[in-house]
Each structure stands twice: as C-alpha cells, then as structure tokens.
Design a protein around this nucleic acid. Structure first.
Length: 299
DNA sequence: GTCCAGGACTCGC
DNA sequence: GCGAGTCATGGA
C-alpha cells in the first residue's frame, strides 16, 4: 500500500484540520466517511471507480488509495490530485484575505480562530445544484437527510475495504426520472422539478462548468444562472462559491450568514438585507471566503 | 400550536 | 418593480 501513497503539496498557511472540522459537521453526510482524521470517498475517474482516503501531511495532504481502487496510471493519479486541489481550494493565495482579516472588525476573530481553513468546494456541478436546491429554506440537518436519500436511491455504491462508498448520481440518470420518485423522498414537488430541469440541462450539455467560466465574471454567471427555474440569487451565489470557486460570491440572503453576522456584530436581531450588504462592502473580492469563515461561527 | 430553517415562484397591483 | 401568499418538512 505504501507505494500507492500520494502527497499533494499545500501552501504554508493551509491547515488540513480546519477543513476536516468543516467536513465533519454532519453525521448524515453520505458522500464521504471520516475516521481518525482521514476522509475517505469514491470518485469516478473516466468511468472507473477510485476510492481514496485523504489526511493531513507535513507537506500538505496525503492521499492513499484503497486496495483494488487505485486509478489506472499516472493520468488517473493526476485527476485525483486535481480533484483534491479543487475540493480544498489549494491553488489560491489567501494572503490578501488574511490581511483583510487583520483589519476587519467583523472578520478578525473568526479568521484568527480558523486560519488555515479554505472554502471547501463541491467540484461536481450537478451535485452542487442538487445540494443547493435541497438546502433552500430548510435546515441544513434536514438537507443532509434528503441528500442521503437521493444519493442512496439514485447513486451507485462501491464496496471497498468492507464499506460502501457512494458516487453521486449523474445528471443523465436524473434527467429521465419522474418527479414523483423524488417527491417520495420528501423532496418538495417544486424542488423535484427544479432538480430534474437542471439535470436535463446538464445532460444535454447546455449547462457545464466550462460554459459558465467562459462568461468571464460573477455578474454574468449569476445572470445566466438565475434565468434557470429554481435558481435565485442565493443559489446562484452558492454555486459560484462552492463549485465555480469565486472567492467573492456572496449569498446575501443566507439565513446562516445572517445569524453569523448577528453574532459577530453583537446585534440583538438579525441584520436586514441592507446591513448584510453594508457589512460586506469592505470584503470586496473575498466575500465568499468571509461567508465561509463566518459560517464556522454557527457550529 | 407557532415559528423558523443555507429561498424561489407566482400573482396582484 | 414590490409585497404577500404558497410551497412542504421537521425540530424547537
């Protein structure tokens, strides 16, 4: 097994345990398993299931493949490595954000406390949309339950090391699914329609990460996304933040953000939308990072 | 019973 | 363009 160890270098200011703490926030998370500091998950690499565990390492992140589920060849290793880099946003220089954290009164404490944390992403576009839509207007805890039902109903499981690892259902499969099948999982009728609509767009190839990146900036991407049924400003910014990796996306309507701001600013009520925007003005360029760090106040 | 959760759509004006 | 009603479930 030792020869299947892969070390992914990370910047000096990266702290794996901060990301781990975020990843551990729900016992109902179904896309990976965390045990003793190692996050283990399955990944589809060119149609082949790969299963790997990642953990902290003095030089960054150690990736170890489970027996029988290593990628075939160097190219496969590169894809896993690229996935992890994307997942934990390893290629971003956070020094400007940390400078901001030094001077900003609202961010100061939380940035100091969780320094080393990166915006944990969701590299797969379809998975991000499903997760965001499921999360609209309900508690995160219930969203995890719905995602678990969704994945265990429509996804595929890989058996490795005596355990099951799930691969998120692809858009093609959901595109041809009846809304009633989602409704049975207690996903609302509307959300079921939204999810199937998005699945069709992705399956048809009209909605891809590449196409969205080609639009060039957050504003145009948000406009494109909010034209899709079921995607409002909150969801568009959520997708920008978690999948398209905009460091500046700002889900201003986010209730969790409001509660975090209330706490950080010492208010006796939640801020209104104007205040939420005003708080974020000094964070221009880093509003997604600010949001992600502020969310850590909720746990 | 009421209110609130990581919102968005629809309708009436 | 803006406010109110609706969607639906589960926990406090």
């Amino acid at each position: 097994m030792r020869d299947e160890l892969l070390v992914i270098p990370a910047p000096e200011d990266f702290i794996f345990d901060e990301c781990l703490a975020y990843l551990m926030r729900s016992a109902d998370e179904c896309m990976f398993r965390i045990n003793d500091g190692t996050v283990t998950r399955a990944l589809d690499v060119d149609g082949e299931p790969v299963v790997f565990g990642m953990s902290g390492h003095p030089d960054g992140i150690a990736v170890e493949f489970l027996e029988g589920f290593a990628p075939g060849g160097l190219e496969g290793c590169d894809k896993v490595s690229g996935f992890v880099r994307d997942w934990l946003d390893l290629d971003r220089d956070l020094r400007p954000f940390y400078e901001l954290g030094e001077s900003d009164p609202l961010l100061h404490d939380v940035v100091q406390k969780h320094r080393g944390l990166r915006v944990v992403g969701i590299p797969d576009l379809f998975e991000t949309f499903v997760w965001a839509i499921l999360g609209q207007q309900i508690t995160v805890a219930f969203a995890y339950v719905l995602k678990k039902r969704f994945v265990e109903t429509f996804g595929t499981a890989v058996e490795a090391g005596g355990r099951k690892y799930w691969i998120f259902p692809d858009a093609q499969k959901i595109a041809g699914t009846d809304p009633d099948a989602l409704r049975e999982l207690k996903i609302t009728g509307r959300k079921s329609e939204y999810i199937i609509g998005i699945a069709r767009m992705i399956a048809d190839g009209e909605l891809t990460k590449e196409r969205l990146f080609e639009l060039g900036n957050d504003k145009l991407i948000q406009k494109e996304l909010t034209a899709i049924r079921g995607i409002g400003p909150w969801t568009a910014n959520y997708v920008l933040m978690r999948c398209l990796r905009s460091p500046d996306a700002y889900p201003a309507a986010d209730v969790g953000l409001h509660n975090a701001l209330k706490h950080a600013a010492g208010l006796d009520r939640k801020p209104n939308l104007q205040e939420v925007e005003a708080f974020a003005a000094p964070w221009a360029g880093w509003r997604a990072y600010a949001t992600f760090y502020l969310w850590r106040l909720l746990h």
